[in-house]
Design a binder for these strands. Structure first.
Lengths: 342, 342
DNA sequence: TACGCAATCTGAAACGTTTCAGGTTACATC
DNA sequence: GATGTAACCTGAAACGTTTCAGATTGCGTA
C-alpha cells in the first residue's frame, strides 16, 4: 500500500503506530496531553521513516511561513558587503526552522515595493532591510501594519523596532582623534550620503570632534560609491599634493582605496606624511593600503545579530524590541598580525 | 460578511463575480475552456480586490514550491563573491514567481547535507551550488534522484546538467601569454586548490601554455584563501627579491593582493620589473595594485546565467541542459578608464 | 454501584489551491 | 422534435497540517 517514492506524512506515522493523525501531530509538537510513551514511539517511527514536516501544510494551516525575507538592492555595491549580511543572517537562522529568502529590488523602482509585496502576499514572518534613512518610509509602512522587521541602521523610530547598527558616530570621533594624535593638522572627510542614517551619524561625530579638538576640517562630499572612486581620487590628489590636507577620514573602504590612489599620485605616504583613517568591512584595505588606520565593521556579525533580534521580536512581539550597536574596533596596523575578527 | 483585514482568496473573487471557485482558478491561469469575457471580468475583480495567490495553497496542491535554493558555505570567503552570485540569481528570478532561498552549510559538516535536506523536505524546485569538484558528490546525488540543479563550475557529468563557469583554462593560457609578451622569463603560479574543478582547469591552462611557449614555471601551491595571504606573501617575497620570479599568474584576487605586498617588500614594481596577472571579481585589484594585468570574472552575470539555465531546465526537463562558459575579458590597465563590466 | 475526574486519545473541519468528472446551456443537424 | 456536440462552467475531492470539541479509559471516592 505504502508507495516507496511517496514522502512520509503524519498519516504514514499514524498508520504505522495505529494512532490518530492528530495524536501524532500533537506528539511531535511535544504537547502536554500526549503520554510520554506515545511520544517516544511516535518520534521513533518518525525518525525511522524519515519524516519531514511539510512546510506548505503548516503554512496553509497556521499562516506562519517560517520565512525571513531580506530585501536587498540589486545594484552592484562596491565590495559585496551584503554577502556578509546574508551569511550572518543565514548562519543564525540555520537551526531555527526559518528559511531565508532574498527579495531583490532594482534601484530604479521604489524601495518600498518589495516590502509591500512581502507584506501583501504574506511571504514572510519578518523582514530585514538595510541602508536606513532617519525617517524611513519602509519602517513607517511596516510599523503602521505591525509587520515585524529589523533594520540594519537606525531610524527615528528606532525604539519601536529591533535594529542593528555600527556606531558610525563613535567611528568618526575615534577616527578624528586618531588623526589628530598622529599629528595631522588639516583634516578632510570623505562623507557618506547625508540622507542615510549612517551618514548623519558619521557627520555628527566628525563635526563634534573637529569642534571639540579645535581642528580645521573640510568635508569632501557624498562620493563613497564605486562609481565615485575616480572622482574622489581626482578631488583629493591636489589637496594632498599642496599639503592642504594631511589627514583624511574615509567613510568607506572604497573611499579609502581612492584616497590611497590619490596619495600615490600626490607622492604622499599613508602612515608617513599623510594619515588615513577608514572603515573596513573585510581585509582588503589592510592589504591594499598598508599605512592606513582602519576600524573594522563586521557585516557578518551584523547579519547574525539582525536575525537574532528579529527572532526575539517574533517570539515576544509585545516585549520592547532589542537592538545591537557595534562599537568600532581598531584593526591592527600591521597586516602580518593577521585577522582581528572571528 | 467579508472581513476588511482578511486577504482575498479565490473564494472572494468567486463570490464577487458569482462564479465558481474552480472557474476563477482556471480563468486566472488562462485556461482555454474559460470564455474571454469571464476571464476579463475575473481578472478585473482580482486586480480590484488586490488578490495575491496563496503560495502555500498552490504548493500544497501542486507540489511545486516556486523556490530556487542556493546552497552557500557560511565560511567567510575572502571578498564576498557569493554576494554577486546571489544578486545575479535574484535579479534573474525577480519577475518569474520564483523565490530565492539561501541555504547555508557550515564548513565543518558534509557539503551534501544541505542538499539532502532540500531534496528530502522538497524545499525547492531547483538547486544552485558552487565550487564544484570534477567528480562532485552533490552532482552525483542530485543526478541520481533526478533533482534539477545548476552548478557554478563544471563537473565530470557536465553534459547531464546545466552549469555556468568561467573559462579558467583560457584565463591561464591568456595570462601566461600576457606575462611572456610583457617580457617575463621566469614565471610563477599561485594555483587554486587542485581538487576543485576550476583549479584543475586553470592548472591545465598554465601547464599547457608554459610547455607550448617553452617557458620555465613553478607552481606555488594551493594558498588562495584569505587565511593563506600572509603565507603567500612570505613565500613570494624572496623569490621576487632574488629575481628567481619576474612574472606571476595569480589564481585569485586575494593572491594578487598578497603578491602586491610581496612585491612591495621585495622592492619590485608590478608592471615594471615584475609582471602580475590576476583574476578580479570586483574592482578592488585594479585600485589596489595599479600595475597588475587583470581579467574580470563576473560573478553577478554568473548568478544571472545560473538562474537562466536552471529555469530553462525546469521548463523543459527532457531537453539537453544548457550551459554558459564566460570567456575571460581583459580589464583596462588604467583604472581611470573606469568600469569594464555592466 | 455510581460518579467525577484526570489522563489520553480521536475524528472532523479548515486553511487555499488545482484537478477531475460531470453538468448545463445553446445551437446545429437529423 | 429528438439528438449530438461544442462551449462553458461547477462541486467535490485532495494536498498535509493544526485545532476544536469531544470520546474513551482507568481509577479513586462517595
Amino acid at each position: 500500500m505504502s508507495d516507496k517514492t511517496a514522502r512520509p506524512t503524519l498519516r504514514t506515522i499514524a498508520q504505522a503506530t495505529g494512532l490518530g493523525v492528530s495524536t501524532v501531530s500533537r506528539a511531535l509538537i511535544d504537547a502536554p496531553e500526549i503520554g510520554a510513551k506515545t511520544k517516544a514511539r511516535v518520534r521513533a517511527v518518525a525518525q525511522e521513516v524519515g519524516y519531514r514536516p511539510n512546510r506548505a501544510g503548516i503554512r496553509l494551516r497556521t499562516g506562519r511561513t517560517n520565512v525571513i525575507s531580506v530585501v536587498l538592492s540589486t545594484e552592484v555595491e562596491a565590495f559585496g558587503l551584503s554577502s556578509f549580511l546574508v551569511h550572518g543572517l543565514s548562519s543564525r537562522l540555520a537551526d531555527t526552522g526559518y528559511h531565508l529568502v532574498v527579495t531583490p529590488f532594482s534601484c530604479g523602482s521604489d524601495p518600498i515595493d518589495p516590502i509591500r509585496y512581502v507584506v501583501e502576499s504574506a511571504a514572510a514572518d519578518g523582514i530585514v532591510f538595510a541602508d536606513t534613512r532617519p525617517d524611513d518610509p519602509r519602517a513607517r509602512y511596516l510599523l503602521d501594519r505591525g509587520f515585524p522587521f529589523a533594520s540594519h541602521g537606525r531610524t527615528s523610530h528606532e525604539h519601536r523596532h529591533p535594529f542593528v547598527d555600527f556606531d558610525n558616530r563613535a567611528f568618526a570621533e575615534m577616527g578624528v582623534a586618531q588623526l589628530a594624535a598622529a599629528g595631522a593638522q588639516r583634516l578632510g572627510f570623505v562623507a557618506p550620503p547625508a540622507d542615510l542614517s549612517y551618514g548623519v551619524e558619521m557627520r555628527a561625530g566628525w563635526e563634534h570632534t573637529i569642534a571639540h579638538l579645535g581642528l580645521s576640517g573640510q568635508a569632501i562630499g557624498d562620493l563613497t560609491s564605486a562609481d565615485g572612486m575616480c572622482r574622489i581620487a581626482e578631488r583629493l590628489t591636489p589637496l594632498f599634493a599642496d599639503g592642504s590636507l594631511d589627514g583624511l577620514l574615509c567613510g568607506s573602504a572604497s573611499a579609502g582605496l581612492a584616497a590611497a590612489e590619490a596619495a600615490r599620485r600626490a607622492g604622499r605616504r599613508p602612515g608617513g606624511d599623510l594619515q588615513l583613517v577608514a572603515k573596513e568591512a573585510h581585509d582588503v584595505l589592510r592589504w591594499a593600503v598598508p599605512g592606513a588606520i582602519t576600524y573594522g565593521e563586521n557585516f557578518r556579525r551584523a547579519g547574525y545579530d539582525l536575525a537574532d533580534v528579529l527572532l526575539d521580536h517574533l517570539a515576544a512581539p509585545d516585549a520592547s524590541p532589542r537592538s545591537v550597536i557595534e562599537k568600532p574596533q581598531r584593526c591592527p596596523l600591521d597586516w602580518q598580525t593577521g585577522h582581528v575578527r572571528a
